[in-house]
Amino acid sequence: MCLGVPGKIVKITGNEPFRTASVNFGGAVKGDISLLFCPDAKVGNYCLTHAGNALEVIDEKLALETITLLQTYST
């Protein structure tokens, strides 16, 4: 139900609340991603996008902590 993909915001255009972003998904940069739900999103943030909308800015620190913790199972 929820094909959501993380990508890095590389450009923001427009004015509140209808700001849109160009988001880099591992090399494919797509524009017109709505930032309606992420009013604090900045260039350089990673956001989770679904159907042309950024749903949330990713907490990079927590993501790193989580993967580090999970890596301990394989050591």
Binding site: P6, G26, Y46, A63, L70, Q71, Y73
Partner: peptide, 20 residues
């Protein structure tokens, strides 16, 4: 792809499976 590739890591997955 950041925040995707790390969560597809084979070794990490195998570690979690062992724990399971």
């Amino acid at each position: 792809m950041k925040f995707v590739t790390e969560f597809r890591d084979k070794e990490v997955a195998e570690g979690v499976i062992t724990e399971i």
